[in-house]
Design a binder for these strands. Structure first.
Lengths: 210, 210, 210, 210
DNA sequence: CTGTAATCGAGACGGTACGTCACGTCTTTAC
DNA sequence: GTAAAGACGTGACGTACCGTCTCGATTACAG
């Protein structure tokens, strides 16, 4: 099937791409996703509209790429600060599962609260709820890779007998990521460190009396 | 301060209101929230645009009312089928907490899977992620009342010693509603009865070895 | 065949129509037909683009109506100045055909030179050369009615024996309107009173020796 | 003053030039002048856009050159058919002015009707009405040289006393070229041999009774 | 039972943004 | 250095809806 003669990506303007990302992220923060227009992105980036339409099919796709780029950069910076060559996203393993999970979950809460991430992340999450394609990509490229860090970490604990053998780690991790996600997306309650700690405790030991 | 001469709701056309709800729900299913326009709702409902603008401030508000109406009707019908006068939304209390939770959670999974509810509910959930005001109203009028049924039920179990005394029921219920919501909204995994059962088990007894 | 549900002309805004005419005529004079855009007309008239597209199919159609309106007004004003109820466009009949023709032709030259008429008239004439539909309408609604005044006048002279019996007045009049039109449109020579006079003389008596 | 580093015409690609002419003439016939775009000419000619912009300042200039080239070729072919070395554009002089004029005018009518010439000629004529520069060039390079053939021919007749001494040939010729041009450009009437004949007769002997 | 005031369907209005097209310039690679 | 190719910033296109407005026609209450 003939594509509409796909553009030649080797000749793509890097400077335009960056300017578009910056403009999109700035705008989604300033006016919100609904009122962010492609024309405004183009104007702010000092770029022709066609340059956006040439490389992305929709404004959600632009924002997704911009956000992924942002996440990547933030990650790279984090690793650098830690003086590491490899990405620093692994979940720590001090031998104390409860402490490790609380540590990571508190960091997640902090990130969810950071206004720099909040606006674009909400916009993408919202769009993903309604737009299957974008939602899938968002999950596959951003969310699931992060969740897999939990899977790895839980499996290590399971090998050591710190988690019951019958437990499926991929489901277990949802005991805390699910509630956190819900509070963030639906604002059903405050997102605090204490809340994160409680979730970890309930999840590890259950709510039935021991 | 003078309101914009608020309309007189006693003279409101009931037939128009119903037609607008029907049109909105039909359209959100057919073309999706983003492409649903007020003009299309008006045209389909055989109604002037002003009749919509007179009574609702935005298309999300129309859809919210339409959906609440739908939920109400569905509820009423359910109660009627059960031959009850009062609404049938309470969580059963057979004395077996695990069984009761699994029963209700399976029903929730079924509802989330029902295409009649799926499209408008997703649209509203998505809009709520990004639009604080609508999100809050959605939660307050629809979600939180349902969650409170869990609180009531859990408290009863707690009084009987079936749940540890230190547990906060309002947080505990998120151990299963959170994961369910996340799978539904972000499509991070399949929504099945087996999954619902697993969530209840993990939540009750924890994932650490007993 | 279903029209695209033609708009209701009884509800048309007269103020907008006038503003659009004024803007179109002003713009064609200032920037020329080629660079006159519908957006600019709309902006200058303080009108939405759709209001133009609702009532006219193209920018040439707008200009045609604007110009016809202008011609009508100019005509009405002329009649009024002369204190007449009927339109003053008839060709005089003093009994001296040569003098009458020269008089009218000189007036035509003056009009063709008047910058107020020149720009829009050129634009329409040009568009009509290339666009059959517009050209036909331009001729039928503006040019031919004026030519018919010559026909009437010539026929009267012919009845009196001042013009040879075998002559077809509709063709005869082209002996002077044709050259004038050509000099105006193609700029093949200057448009002066002397030139007009010469045309009348050559046409009446021929260029062969008598 | 530095020209924009004028291109070196000795290295110009003849094949591209020809292809551009062909493409321009074909397109003006197929889609009309207004919808003929430089991009389309380039694409059809298998030529880069810059190759057009390097050698011509505007699309009207391209078409003008293309049309002049066409006219030249047609002329050369005509001469060749007649077995002549020199160009065959002079007006015949059989001694019978009326007959000679009718002969040439009938040929002009035929040419104006030939669809191969019609589309580009109209486009250029139209553009010339509105664009002084192009109009002047069109007249100087194409129209006026043809009119001068009449001047020469008329002067010869005048020397022989077949035309009144006081007549200005340059004006006289407009008695038939003007009407013809008008009928062609403004479509004010049919273009036939009979019409051409009538024009010649009226012009020679006048419309007043002799 | 009839006036009268508000709601109703309809849709024109001034706008904003859409996604596309072509402009004329510029850069890259091949000849 | 010219050529084909095509990405770029720019700006107009014609369309779709926005939310406001004005217009009769309908409707339901108050006199």
């Amino acid at each position: 099937m003939a594509q509409k003669t796909a553009p030649d990506s080797t000749r793509r303007s890097e400077r335009s791409r960056r300017a578009i990302y910056d403009a999109a992220l700035a705008l989604v923060g300033e006016v919100g996703y609904g009122k962010m227009t492609i024309e405004a992105i183009a104007a702010r980036a000092g770029v022709g509209k066609q340059t956006i339409y040439r490389w992305w099919p929709s404004k959600s796709a632009v924002l997704l790429d911009a956000f992924l780029d942002l996440a990547e950069q933030a990650n790279a910076q984090l690793s650098e600060e830690a003086g590491l060559a490899e990405p620093a996203t692994d979940i720590p393993d001090t031998g104390d599962l409860e402490a490790d999970l609380k540590y990571v979950l508190r960091a997640t809460v902090d990130e969810m609260t950071d206004p720099k991430f909040d606006a674009p992340a909400r916009a993408l999450a919202a769009e993903g709820v309604v737009n299957q394609e974008l939602g899938t990509e968002f999950v596959e490229r951003l969310l699931e890779p992060q969740l897999q860090h939990y899977v790895k970490r839980l499996r290590r604990s399971q090998d050591r007998g710190e988690i019951a053998a019958h437990v499926d780690p991929r489901i277990a991790l949802e005991l805390w990521t699910g509630p956190l996600a819900q509070r963030w997306m639906q604002r059903t309650g405050p997102l605090t460190h204490a809340y994160a700690d409680t979730l970890v405790e309930y999840a590890l030991y259950g709510i039935a009396p021991r």
